[in-house]
Design a binder for these strands. Structure first.
Lengths: 124, 124
DNA sequence: CAGTGACATAAGTCATTACATATATGTATG
DNA sequence: CATACATATATGTAATGACTTATGTCACTG
């Protein structure tokens, strides 16, 4: 079994970048727009140097693009489709794990039942 | 700006789990099947205790489900749709970051050009 | 050029985590 | 019950990374 042929097996590095909550919040602050660092600092309420530190890691990972305009540097996502993918991932996670809202917990219980049935059939 | 309303901002914990390459390889080893731990050990070539350690973290995160069958414990994904989502994420990453294959690097250059145009329009 | 504001980088500290080694627990069989 | 196999858990260590403080670099203006 060649695990490297599985696309997911290559995602370690980008997940390492995304595993830091403040980096996710930076991506959310950007959304579909290009914004200067001052905006990000204000939106996240993080210190400037910390924002710069995280932006460099996001930039080197290819998750954000930077463009200088005079005194300001604007950052944006190379393709906002990333946030849509992350949203579908969050939906999957919410549906299959213990999550924050009581409604989601109830869904997980129901999901658990159908998972039991599915597991039986795939192991049969 | 309320960053917590962005779905992606809640993905930190699950990304932390997925950021470990061997855990991704375990998920790839499972694919759409339920497999005993011995299979995973063989597929990943990791020590038994290390596999157990990672499986516990995956299990507690809700990313795998466990079912004991006699001496064996079988693990599988609660929903293999996760791998499809990860595949689309890997496709995004490959298209927007410096990646392994020369072809992908060429695509990134082309993508860079269209990103320049897109950025101008969204910042206009 | 000096001063100012925006932003990046360097260095040190502390917290977190993967892994190896040792040990414990669960199941099945004679 | 003793033994064997499968698997989980406990403990310690080394590596990694987020954050803070200090400092450097860039762009602009008078």
């Amino acid at each position: 079994m060649n695990l490297e042929s599985c696309p997911a097996s290559h995602l370690g590095p980008v997940f390492k970048v995304l595993a830091e909550p403040n980096r996710l919040r930076i991506l959310c602050a950007l959304g579909t727009e290009c914004r200067p660092v001052t905006d990000i600092i204000h939106a996240t309420a993080l210190p400037q140097t910390n924002v710069s530190f995280h932006l460099r890691i996001l930039r080197e990972a290819g998750l954000v693009r930077a463009e200088r305009r005079g005194v300001f540097i604007y950052y944006c996502l190379p393709d906002p489709e990333l946030l849509a993918i992350l949203q579908s991932l969050q939906a999957w996670v919410a549906a299959h794990t213990l999550s924050s809202t009581p409604q989601n917990q109830e869904d997980s219980v129901n999901e658990g039942v159908s998972m039991t049935e599915r597991r039986v059939s795939s192991c049969g």
